[in-house]
Design a protein around this nucleic acid. Structure first.
Lengths: 113, 113
DNA sequence: TTGACATATATCGGTGTTCGATGTAATATA
DNA sequence: TATATTACATCGAACACCGATATATGTCAA
């Protein structure tokens, strides 16, 4: 996130929910998956991840269950019905805002809603 | 900025610099222009604008001059050489990050750098 | 002419997002 | 057996943004 770490901030919870809409994951798996899929451009830090996951559990967007793997207890996160609805909302918002920004900096010639 | 104000945050200074790369403007003019061009989607608040402008002046990205208009003293902001370079950097970053987010949420099929 | 509204500047405090630093503990590997 | 990796977690600091608030002038309608 180099120079301006907040350039696309706020999209983090959207990306996590999007991942979990594919399958249940544990924390480190989310970081790895995001990192690999983005060619290391999106490098989520644990100090960001866990507080975010906890807050989304508290908000009812995620539920958790634990599972033994390689002797280690892994905490899996699962998206809820409410989380899916919230994800839809965030994606819609992202599209609107990103398009407006693109339009304003001249990446798209005109904004068409 | 409705539900998630931070969805495209950090892009504010980029948008302001982009505006000023067209012509010198005073504070309110920037708010109005951004608002009108985006069909009221991007509504920058004065509490955000002025501290940001001041910090960019301090960083050397902007310079200022005052001009009388309708009896009122308007403070115009002008982009500097350094500000133009910084804008280029921010736009490049925005493109990279926004593309990655789009790819991760499945808006683009594959990320091609 | 006066009160309301718009224009225009500015600051302050609070909230939310993110990360670096730090801590703990188990497994894998050299 | 020492080191690295995996995996969980919290805390404090920095930063972005906004609502509230303050001040002052111009415009316009009642």
């Amino acid at each position: 996130m180099t120079v301006n770490r907040n350039l696309v901030s706020g999209s983090t919870s959207m990306l996590l929910l999007r991942l979990l809409s594919e399958k249940d994951m544990y924390g480190y798996e989310m970081i790895d998956t995001l990192s690999k899929r983005s060619n290391n451009i999106f490098e989520l830090k644990v100090g960001t991840l866990y507080p975010l996951l906890h807050s989304m559990v508290k908000s009812g967007y995620l539920s958790t269950f634990e599972e033994q793997a390689n002797g280690k207890l892994r905490k899996y996160y699962q998206i809820t019905e409410s989380g899916s609805r919230y994800l839809g909302k965030l994606m819609e918002e992202w599209r609107t805002h990103a398009d407006v920004v693109d339009m304003l900096i001249g990446r798209r010639v005109q904004y068409e809603g």
